[in-house]
């Protein structure tokens, strides 16, 4: 833990300032150069209801703003879902897709693209299969009677494997000139098509999930002690865990639905936050939200400005996340069992 309790207020302030700063910087960043002053003017005009009818106005208001908002929302959502999953599964190494939600949603999207190309059908199928895969995982884990954490994680692996195989099958039969590149690109994750309609589609579920998890954040501490101790402390762990899993899954499914698969965020960000604010989920969850949003905005800015063509963000989060995780693994002295 880097900071003591007393510095916590200062830390929150710094994190929020970085988030706001990053958000505005991301409105400037991009291939189409817009002078800093003009961005401010466009924003203030837009908030008053009249976006200037220019290329710059359209770029900032219709492309970069929804994209930055979606970045923040998805980053915060994936990170808080990851932190919650790690808490309720008593394992700091699980990520939001443990229960197969990512593979399920990916299959749904790939299937949708195969049927009809990228459109609303793919989005809806992604959401449906994302949630369906978690229900399947849950049902499978119940087959052996008691629903233990280990049973859930193992069932998640099984369901993920099945959907991964199905994705390969779809890729194999897809039209290699048209559909296959679309599926592959979608699987790598991207914010390139971010729009207000995306925001409308997933904004409410993601926000609702985040708020729900934030409200339950202290209870996750108790869950992380294990079922027996939760019971002995007067908390029914089974129902509470299901509630947390349902909300975290819903967030993850909604994120995957609009952006494709973006790995590593839900795993790495909570760990960074543990180093900043400590282990208590009371602080960890809000911190994960803020840092997750910062991270996603930052990485997406790199994705669209680093090269002439956009780099899929899933590739970047893995390239940034994996080495960082290796570093964490080395430096955090044996706290993980």
């Amino acid at each position: 833990m880097i900071c003591k309790q007393k510095n916590l207020k200062f830390i929150w302030l710094v994190m929020l300032l970085i988030l706001v700063g990053m958000f505005f910087v991301s409105l400037y960043g991009g291939r189409y150069f817009i002078p800093p002053g003009e961005v401010g003017e466009i924003l203030s005009a837009g908030l008053r209801g009249g976006v200037p009818d220019s290329i710059a106005g359209s770029v900032v208001w219709n492309l970069r703003l929804p994209r930055a908002l979606l970045n923040a929302l998805v980053g915060a959502g994936l990170a808080v879902a990851g932190a919650s999953f790690q808490g309720v599964f008593k394992n700091p190494l699980v990520s939001p897709d443990v229960l197969g939600v990512s593979s399920g949603a990916a299959f749904g999207a790939a299937f949708g693209i195969l049927l009809s190309g990228i459109n609303q059908i793919a989005t809806v199928l992604a959401l449906v299969f994302g949630i369906l895969s978690v229900l399947m995982t849950y049902t499978l884990s119940k087959l052996r009677g008691e629903s233990s954490t280990l049973a859930l994680v193992l069932s998640g692996m099984i369901i993920s494997a099945v959907f991964s195989a199905l994705i390969s099958l779809i890729k194999y039969v897809a039209d290699p000139y048209d559909k296959l590149p679309a599926i592959t690109y979608w699987l790598m994750g991207s914010f390139a098509s971010a729009s207000y309609s995306d925001l409308k589609l997933v904004g409410v579920p993601i926000l609702a999930g985040i708020i729900g998890l934030l409200l339950l954040r202290w209870r996750i501490n108790v869950l992380s002690l294990g079922d027996e101790e939760a019971y002995s402390l007067g908390v029914n762990p089974v129902r509470m865990r299901l509630t947390v899993i349902a909300m975290a899954t819903f967030i993850t499914a909604a994120c995957v639905t609009v952006t494709g698969i973006i790995g590593w965020v839900g795993l790495v960000i909570p760990h960074i936050c543990r180093m900043i604010v400590g282990e208590d989920h009371k602080n960890l969850l809000p911190a994960s939200c803020i840092v997750g949003a910062i991270f996603m905005i930052m990485v997406d800015m790199i994705a669209r400005t680093a090269t002439a063509a956009e780099i899929p963000i899933g590739i970047l989060t893995a390239l940034v996340g994996a080495p960082f995780f290796a570093l964490l693994f080395k430096t955090s002295k044996g706290d993980w069992q």
Binding site: N221, V222, L225, V235, E279
Partner: peptide, 20 residues
Amino acid sequence: SFPYTVRELVTMGRARHIGV
């Protein structure tokens, strides 16, 4: 599983008195 501080862990003993 998680390296809580002593105070954090002891505070969890209050769970039955703290709302959901």
